[in-house]
Write a protein that binds this DNA or RNA. Structure first.
Lengths: 122, 122
DNA sequence: CGGTTCGTACGATACCCATCGTAGTACGCC
DNA sequence: GGCGTACTACGATGGGTATCGTACGAACCG
């Protein structure tokens, strides 16, 4: 189903925890930050990988880098370099295998809360 | 269905966030600490309220108090004084209403992880 | 009342962490 | 090679927080 050949990943590699080493506490901690939750929601909204730069976060670039690293090291996302860009993707399958339903309920909860906030603001 | 009349709560009262003020980020943060996750799992294991003292945590009493307060202020548990004891209960209904399925998947995930760890240790 | 049990309040401490700015590296392109 | 883009590394900083010990308060029991 992949129609477009993607640029190959470059030599730079990034540390990812093995699936069996992902800890629930770390995942929950990673998701408990508003910026990171926002990143994860955005990532969940599209099937494809997203480069770091498409996220328009109200923090500096170095802080953004920090959040992506926390997400990667906790096992929530995977990252790979493609040229100068760094592509991000949710580790849906690994998380689903380890903690069935967890990611889905967190994403749904985040959506509901966003909707609630919108209603309250009106 | 309540057969045993319980001792009345005493005058001392405790602040609880209204259901609509419970924030997902705070709940996730509360659950991201190993001690607190353990407390919540224990609490989920029995339908009844549990006094603080039945939790045998490997930390001091003052630290235990701290963790229960975090759980209460984040909206995860409710607490009420009964005599000298302080009874704790999960706010299942409120959480289910706000974030359907979330608590269940976190608890299931914690169970699975505990089981995995046990297997790995053997 | 005195003692016991249960939990709190407070201060201290050490660590974690979200944030920033600046300087730097890696890559693609002209 | 030189330039621009994308991201990183590092150090600093301020605020949060998990932990403790000690001293205290509130309720029950004799």
């Amino acid at each position: 189903m992949r129609t477009q050949p993607r640029p190959p990943s470059t030599g730079r590699s990034l540390e990812h925890p093995d699936r069996d080493l992902i800890r629930l506490e770390d995942v929950l901690h990673a998701l408990s930050d508003p910026m990171r939750l926002r990143i994860v929601c955005t990532l969940a909204g599209s099937e494809a990988e997203q480069s770091c730069s498409v996220f328009d976060l109200p923090v500096s670039k170095s802080t953004t880098t920090h959040h992506f690293r926390v997400l990667r090291e906790s096992g929530v996302i995977s990252q790979i370099y493609r040229g100068t860009a760094k592509m991000n993707a949710l580790r849906r399958d690994d998380l689903e295998e380890l903690f069935p339903g967890l990611l889905g309920s967190v994403l749904a909860a985040a959506d509901r809360q966003a909707a609630r906030r919108e209603t309250a603001a009106r």
